[in-house]
Simulated assay, not measured.
Amino acid sequence: MRRLMQIACAVAAWASLSLPLSAAPTEPENCPGLIASRDALVSRAALRQDEVGLTFVGHATFLIETPQGVRIATDYSDGTRPPVPPDVATMNKAHSTHFSYRPDPGIKHVLKGWNPAGGPAYHDLTVQDVRIRNVSTNIRSSGGGTEYDGNSIFVFETSQLCIAHLGHLHHTLAPEHLKKLGRIDVLLVPVDGGYTLETFDMMEVLRSINASLMIPMHFFGPSTLNRFLSSAREHFPVEFSNTAAITLSRAALPKSPKILVLPGH
C-alpha cells in the first residue's frame, strides 16, 4: 500500500490530463487520464469505477485492468507476458513476438487477431465490465506481398474509455477502418518505423484517429524511440512518465492529443 501511495503521489501532478460505452455492434457509436509502476501491477482495489489500469509490460504487450478486476494482455507472446495470467489475451500474427504457441492454460479467452481458416477474424466479446472487439487489417507476407486480414486492431471499451492497440500495423487506415474504430481515447502505437509502418505513414494514422492520448510501443531502444519522437513533436506535445503503470480515466484525459512515453521497450 505504501508503494502504491508513493506511485500515486509521484504522478499526481502529471495526471491533470477524459469516455461512453459503444452502441450496438452492428453500427457502433464506438467507444465510450493518468496516474501510474512497472514493479507492481495496479491493485484492483485501487481502481475506482471510472478508472482503468494500464501497464507497459514490454515490446507490444500491455496489461489492461478494469475496475471489476478483468486483466487483459495485448499481443501476448511466449517471450513477453505479464507476471500473472490474464483473463484475456489478444494476439497478432506478423511475428512470433506477438503471439504465443503455448498460452497459459489459465487464460479464459485467447483472441487471435487473424482467422486460421481464412478471411478476417471477428471478435466482439464482453467480459464483466469490458467489451473487446477488433478491426481487421492486412500485413506484409514473407514474400513481400500482402497477407489479407493478418492483423487486428483490438479495441477495449471499459469505464467510459476506448483503448485501441494497433498491433503490427503495416498500412495506413482507410475510411472504413476509421468508421469501425469509432472514437478512440487512448491509442497504443508501434513506433519502430520499419517492421510496422514507416514513421511518416504512422503520423498519418495518428492524425486520422486523433486519440487524446497516444502511447508508443514496439521500439527497440532509445534511438528508435527518439527517431519517432522527433517527427511526432512536429504534431503533438510529448511527455514522459517515470513509471510503466498508469491509471487512466475519462476525466483526466488531455484536452488535446498528446504522446506519453512509458519506460521500457
Rank of each mutant, 00 (worst) to 15 (best):
R183Q: 14
L213S: 02
M217Q: 15
M217R: 07
L188Y: 05
E204F: 12
V191S: 06
L161Y: 10
R227A: 13
T158F: 07
S223M: 14
S159P: 00
G193S: 08
V189Y: 02
C162E: 04
L206F: 09
L181S: 01
E147H: 12
F156R: 09
G193M: 12
E147T: 02
N151T: 02
M203W: 12
H218G: 04
V205F: 11
M214C: 02
P216H: 08
A164R: 08
T199C: 05
K180C: 04
R227I: 05
F154W: 13
M203S: 06
L166R: 06
F200W: 10
P216K: 10
L181W: 10
V155C: 14
L225T: 07
L206T: 03
V186G: 01
P216V: 01
L181F: 09
T158L: 03
G150H: 07
D185M: 05
E204T: 15
L188E: 00
A164C: 07
E157P: 05
L181T: 04
H168Q: 07
R227Q: 09
T172A: 10
N210E: 11
S152Y: 09
C162H: 13
T199N: 11
D149E: 11
M217C: 12
F220C: 05
L188H: 01
K180D: 06
L166E: 01
E198D: 09
S223I: 14
F219D: 00
M217T: 09
P190Q: 06
L166I: 00
D192T: 07
L173I: 06
L169W: 06
N210M: 07
F220Q: 05
V189L: 11
M202V: 05
I184S: 02
T224Q: 13
P190G: 04
A164F: 06
I209R: 15
F154S: 05
T146N: 02
V189R: 05
E198C: 04
L197P: 03
Q160E: 13
H177I: 11
P216M: 10
T196D: 11
L213D: 01
P175L: 09
Q160R: 15
D201A: 13
T158R: 04
S159K: 13
L187K: 10
T146Q: 03
I215H: 08
N210A: 13
E157T: 11
G182A: 08
H168P: 00
M217P: 00
I184H: 06
E198N: 11
R183C: 07
T196C: 14
I215C: 06
G167I: 04
G167C: 11
F200M: 09
G167R: 11
G150R: 09
H165D: 14
M203T: 05
T199L: 11
V191E: 00
M214Q: 04
P222M: 13
G182P: 08
N151R: 10
T224K: 13
G194W: 14
M202A: 05
L166G: 00
R227N: 12
D192V: 03
N151Q: 12
S208A: 15
L178C: 10
F154M: 09
V155M: 11
T158P: 00
L197C: 06
N226L: 15
G193E: 07
I153P: 01
P175Y: 12
